[in-house]
């Protein structure tokens, strides 16, 4: 009798062990796979400085492709008007990372079209004034907001000479994993940093521009398309009197 009992117990233990390993194994395997999947262990370096050249001659009047692409890429189109909000007021409150601006020269009357966004200054006033350090500049020149420590004081918005920043005025129900967004914090264009950190080298606005008005790349690499274009054509920084050394440059303004 006792040997039968022993066999039963052995069977039970064997089956339990198999069941247990089958339960745990996928987790262990996945865990291992995940651990192998390119952890971002290396810090961003200043060897790269991301920048952009915008040819305003190519930027077309009435075209809004870059704005639409940015809105989609960064989930700005998911920010819905709160129920009961006034249309005109909400339009001034909803976030914008990039905008189309049409200008007329006061003396010559020449018309210019251009996209305007965070200029990714080397000496960003928004970073200077931020009390907590939430507004910061990465080593590769990208100026962005750490949304974990932004207290929503909006001093950066007061200080930005380009009016590039937006405050999130309402609860956001839906957001993209790579662009978290929360009520009460400030945000702005980050050169599609999620793309760059995953090895891509273009921004959504650049990809969307069928007129090829936007050239993006590494300003520190003399061989990059943007560096070559900057060398070839005369370009300006907007509000260059402030000596901020912007990462975004314009031609034909």
């Amino acid at each position: 009798m006792s040997s039968v009992n022993d066999r039963g117990r052995r069977d039970f233990l064997k089956k339990s062990a198999i069941a247990a390993s089958m339960t745990v194994a996928p987790g262990v395997v996945l865990q291992t796979l995940q651990a192998r999947a390119e952890p971002r262990t290396t810090a961003v370096t200043s060897k790269v400085r991301w920048g952009m050249l915008i040819d305003t001659n190519k930027c077309a009047d009435g075209c809004n492709d870059c704005v639409a692409a940015c809105d989609k890429e960064n989930g700005i189109d998911l920010v819905n008007k709160p129920e009961g909000a006034d249309d005109a007021l909400w339009e001034r409150q909803r976030p914008h990372w990039i905008r189309h601006v049409k200008l007329k020269d006061n003396i010559t009357g020449r018309i210019t079209n251009l996209p305007m966004m965070c200029q990714h200054c080397e000496y960003p006033p928004c970073v200077d004034v931020c009390p907590t350090g939430a507004s910061f500049k990465r080593a590769d020149g990208i100026v962005m907001v750490d949304r974990h420590i932004c207290i929503g004081c909006r001093y950066c918005m007061m200080a930005c000479p380009y009016k590039a920043r937006s405050f999130i005025h309402a609860e956001v129900a839906e957001k993209l994993t790579h662009t978290p967004r929360g009520k009460g914090c400030v945000e702005s264009c980050n050169f599609c940093v999620h793309r760059l950190d995953n090895g891509q080298t273009t921004t959504a606005c650049q990809d969307a521009c069928k007129h090829k008005a936007i050239v993006f790349g590494d300003l520190n690499d003399p061989g990059s398309e943007v560096s070559k274009a900057l060398k070839q054509y005369p370009s300006v920084q907007i509000r260059d009197d402030l000596k901020l050394n912007t990462g975004v440059r314009y031609t034909n303004i």
């Binding site: 905008r99 189309h100 601006v101 200008l103 003396i107 007061m158 000479p161 009016k163």
Partner: peptide, 29 residues
């Protein structure tokens, strides 16, 4: 001080903007 449109483009008039840049020199509301 905030309502007065910022001089982002000195010497130029903003004819239209997707983000209220003081179109035709109008102040912010």
């Amino acid at each position: 001080g905030q309502a007065f449109p910022m001089a982002i483009f000195p010497g130029k008039t903003v004819l239209s903007s997707g983000f209220f840049d003081g179109v035709n020199g109008q102040p912010f509301l």
